Amino acid sequence: MPRGGDVTAGSAGSADLTRLEASLRTMELTVRRRLDGLLQGNHTGLLPGPGSEPGDARPYQPGDDVRRMDWSVTARTTAPHVRETVADRELETWVAIDLSRSLDFGTADTDKRHLALAGLTAVAQLTAGGGNRLGAVVANGAETMRLPARGGLVHARALVRRVATMPAAPEGVRGDLTAALDQLRRPPRRRGLVAVVSDFLGEPVWERSLRALSGRHDLLAIEVLDPRELELPDVGTVVLADPETGRQREVDTTPLLRREFAAAASAHRDRVAAALRRCGAAHLILRTDRDWVADIVRFATARKHAWSGGGMSPARAGRAGGPA
């Protein structure tokens, strides 16, 4: 599985910045190479105005540019008409990222925080070019950081770097995805794409905020998972810890406990998936024990027909990137 380097958020303040830059650069190149050519193209204008795409015809008014005369309509109606054009509008993408302490967990090839950065990098690559802008709202439970939407590869790299170096919240602080979503609601943003990156642990109290965004934006939810969150191994007595509250509990991984744990985890994932469907969000699942780049490629390829001029349509194809 391509990992794109080991990036550990929360420790970047003391880590070697050269190594961090190299890791992020490797991740970017890995995603770009595997996603090359996917989902590229021009964007349909959202508002009428100067541009290159033909719009509606209307009667000629004094002062109109005669070069926009629509002679076919003029001939049919025997009245002079001009053809308006639709503005070539760039796509504005906002990423809401949940960087709670629960992301500092991984028992396979990487950890969930690395997958969150991978998801952010993929969104940046899939929406790059053509004057598009990328912004982010990052919440770790203790603070919420807003990174303004700007265009260009330099900005995209700086944004990913800022997210990677955001410190982890103190122990005992729970994540707050709702706070990040609410910052995207007020003030209202221009229409575009909103991608939400989280492990979606806990009850879906964020559903109301996400649904409010669906009326104005297309939504993409990127869920990051570790296999040990879905089922417990038969390892005897272990100590389980909640990274957000610091609570610990010693348990014996009996067959009964493992069955109950798996059933509860499956029920929780079903609730999350149902909430995302109600919000009209496309659902991409990245796992620490899978090739996350391959999952992104499969997801993007399967949904390529649902992209209209570079913007993702509301989810109709269900989830992608789940367990094989």
Rank of each mutant, 00 (worst) to 15 (best):
T8I: 14
L20W: 02
R25V: 14
R25E: 12
T30M: 07
T30W: 08
T30G: 10
L35Y: 02
D36G: 11
P48N: 10
G51I: 05
E53S: 08
R58G: 07
Q61D: 05
A75Q: 00
V86D: 02
A87R: 08
V95Q: 04
D98L: 11
L99R: 13
L99V: 03
S100K: 00
A108T: 00
D109K: 01
D109W: 12
D109S: 10
R113T: 13
L117T: 06
G119F: 02
G119Y: 01
V123D: 00
L126F: 09
T127V: 03
A128P: 03
G130Y: 01
N132V: 05
L134K: 01
A136E: 00
N140Y: 08
G141V: 00
E143N: 12
R146E: 13
P148W: 13
A149W: 11
A158M: 14
A158Q: 15
R161Q: 12
R162L: 08
T165D: 05
P167G: 02
P167W: 03
A168G: 08
D176G: 12
T178D: 15
P187L: 07
R190C: 06
L193W: 07
A195V: 13
V197H: 08
A212C: 03
A221L: 04
E223D: 15
R228A: 15
V235F: 15
T237Y: 01
Q248S: 14
Q248T: 15
E250T: 15
D252S: 15
L257C: 08
A263I: 03
S266D: 13
A267L: 13
A274D: 11
C279M: 04
R290L: 14
W292T: 13
A294D: 09
A300F: 09
T301L: 15
A302I: 06
R303E: 06
R303D: 06
G311E: 15
S313L: 08
A315R: 03
R319E: 14
G321T: 09
A324V: 08
A324Y: 07
